[in-house]
Design a protein around this nucleic acid. Structure first.
Lengths: 217, 217
DNA sequence: TTTTGCACTATACACTTGTATATACACACG
DNA sequence: CGTGTGTATATACAAGTGTATAGTGCAAAA
């Protein structure tokens, strides 16, 4: 059977108005990544098949599978930033800022599009462009956090030792713990959240304590 | 061209005494992973080709590519544990225990077999067996560290707040920072090491400070 | 010696992959 | 009415994939 088979049938059997969006392709790709496949193991044909289009139509929307992957990361980052910013606004006084943010982060894990899931899993793998996209999101997170830390310092009087470093530590920790939580059934995530919160408090406490010590000298 | 090509030539051109070891295959796989490919994108044939054997001979040594990947992780963990344990023994008094360990960890990044590299990159991806193997190694690390922390508490009198959690935080942080360092030219790793050391100190300082606060109440 | 077992190879098959080429259909503008 | 232009399609090809089947050659056991 050297020539093509006839059937590369659409997954979505419905009669669709023709035009397919880039987002449709991204959704199809995300569905394929459900279990534990890496983006780099997805084939262009597979994605096209899942989206119900001909293989070649893929090129109308993305240059590459890599290109699509980068788009996925951007999307993950954008919506994550939104969620965190929102969490920070409803920073009511009855709950700790830390806990609120961590919870928002973890909730985002099974948001409609599970792109955060993907970002966390594939952080350190994939094309240069891919990792660059991930790094961008990490830095976003760090910067916002760092700002917050220094602002907080002025209000409470508790200075932070090296706010940029503390932010980096917290960010990496949250992302790593998020990756661990991602593979867990949601009912076991509570523990991870608690652990993460305590870890963050350790870092902040430590950074403040080191700041005091440095000031005393 | 429907039938096979004739040449699937050995990569290692030398005239070898026939028997190839599982380790040879693992080495070949590692070489292929040099740049930034994920294990899941390696094909059995590719590995066999790189090792200079026929595709089918692969099965004499591993069931799967996945199977080989798990073996790689085990090897990475084994040698990492060795290195860290060794570092702890030459824990001379002139250098901090933290810095010595972190340096040992980072040095292991470009050890002969760069398997640690792979472990760090693919931590949260791959087959269940694969991630289980990674988790095993993480826990090893955590446990040894936790023991050390409580032992230290008795000597110095500085108790640690939740030693298990602090160990987990430190472990995850070191691994994440290691993953970041892995993609860097060795001359830029110094900074990462410094950062990591400070981060760890923050955590330990914080955990001790929290312990004191808890005791005072 | 013959036999048996093992490590490896060669060939083949059915299948998937990325992409080149050509083509069909819809809609906007002259 | 064309006539593009953009978006989808089908067909095809060369290459790569996992693996089934059938050897080949060589060392130890009989």
């Amino acid at each position: 059977m050297n020539s093509e088979k006839k059937i590369e049938t659409a997954a979505s059997a419905g009669k669709r108005k023709k035009p397919i969006t880039a987002q449709d392709l991204m959704n199809a790709a995300v569905k394929l990544l459900d279990s534990h496949r890496s983006v780099s193991s997805l084939s262009l044909r597979e994605i096209a098949r899942a989206a119900g289009i001909a293989p070649n139509s893929f090129y109308r929307h993305f240059r590459d599978v890599d290109d699509l992957a980068v788009a996925l990361i951007d999307q993950a980052g954008r919506s994550l930033r939104g969620v965190i910013r929102e969490a920070r606004q409803r920073l009511s006084l009855e709950r700790s800022a830390i806990r609120t943010s961590v919870e928002a982060f973890m909730e985002q894990l099974d948001a409609e599009q599970k792109t955060l899931h993907i970002l966390l899993r594939e952080m350190s793998i994939g094309s240069p462009a891919f990792r660059q996209a991930v790094d961008r999101e990490l830095r976003f997170f760090e910067d916002e956090l760092c700002e917050e830390l220094t602002r907080m310092a002025k209000v409470t009087g508790h200075a932070t030792y090296e706010p940029a470093l503390a932010s980096k530590a917290i960010t990496r920790l949250v992302f790593t713990m998020g990756a661990a939580a991602a593979d867990l059934p949601p009912e076991e995530r509570g523990q991870i959240i608690d652990e993460t919160v305590v870890m963050i408090k350790m870092i902040m406490e430590g950074a403040q304590s080191l700041a005091k010590r440095a000031a005393e000298k």
